[in-house]
Design a protein around this nucleic acid. Sequence first.
DNA 1: CTTAGTCCGACCACATTGATCGGAGATCAT
DNA 2: ATGATCTCCGATCAATGTGGTCGGACTAAG
Lengths: 157, 157
Amino acid sequence: MLKISKKADYALMALQHIASVQFGDVTPGRVVNTKEIAEEYNIPLELLAKVLQVLSKNGLIESHNGPKGGYLLARSARQITIAQIIESIEGPLAITDCSHEKAGEFCMQLEHCNIRTPLLKIQDSIYQLLNNMTLGDMMGGTPLITIQSPSAQGVER
Amino acid sequence: MLKISKKADYALMALQHIASVQFGDVTPGRVVNTKEIAEEYNIPLELLAKVLQVLSKNGLIESHNGPKGGYLLARSARQITIAQIIESIEGPLAITDCSHEKAGEFCMQLEHCNIRTPLLKIQDSIYQLLNNMTLGDMMGGTPLITIQSPSAQGVER
DNA sequence: CTTAGTCCGACCACATTGATCGGAGATCAT
DNA sequence: ATGATCTCCGATCAATGTGGTCGGACTAAG
């Protein structure tokens, strides 16, 4: 199914929200705390907190402690790619077990077969795909319009 | 991590093996049984048997029962795509939970957020990637396809 | 008819993920 | 300075899904 985890989902939602607040027209530069995001999107508070922890530890967002504290994007929304977000939560992208290890040590089945090379090629293509789309692209370029109009985006098929 | 399951891995290995036997120079047209594949690649026999069951039920391979029986590709190696193989084992490609369901029914968090549309776009791109590569390509005959990136980018990495 | 082989269902154990709880440290308001 | 929030971070628990196994029924060759 090639599913991405719910934590990564939450991370994407949270970052998108922070970005739209920070660069929006209403209250630009405002910090956003965990509770606000959790209530807005019906995400379990503690789980979201942990996700945001990881994101800040990996340098995607900055945390400000104490009352009136919260989170801020560490850099521009166009400098944060989807790949960075997902890998920050789920670890390095690995489509198959023997992606990063030396095959032959851990993977007895792959020593005789040649599906490894094409799989790595596919993995690399997926990585490029995720690394070429940024948070800024996800927001549609313009400040938070949250409509889903199928005509707005030309989905190539 | 976006990992594909081991079953799907086994399916790819098995199909690649069957294809190389069937269209190879040594014994073209020979049927291949489960045991042969399992021993060749160190795959648990029973598990591989179940994988091949599913593949045959989904019309990717033909099963011949009884002694001297085994499996045969149902069509040419160039007519079988990686996407078909993986989806045959793991079900339809769904990068996120609300890919095929109607959002708002199952997914309370996504009703307010706009990460759904870009995620579906990414999913579609991945599907194209997997559907443009065939078993024949995996056997090293032809160079691999070139990936096409989604519309918006321009990020240095 | 016997036998070797495949087909097919149900079944179990482990790992990962999703989710929760409790406490410590830091900062702002009073 | 003190208290009250709020973030930070560790450990912990439950559930879903995956990897792997077992036993029986059916089929075709000898």
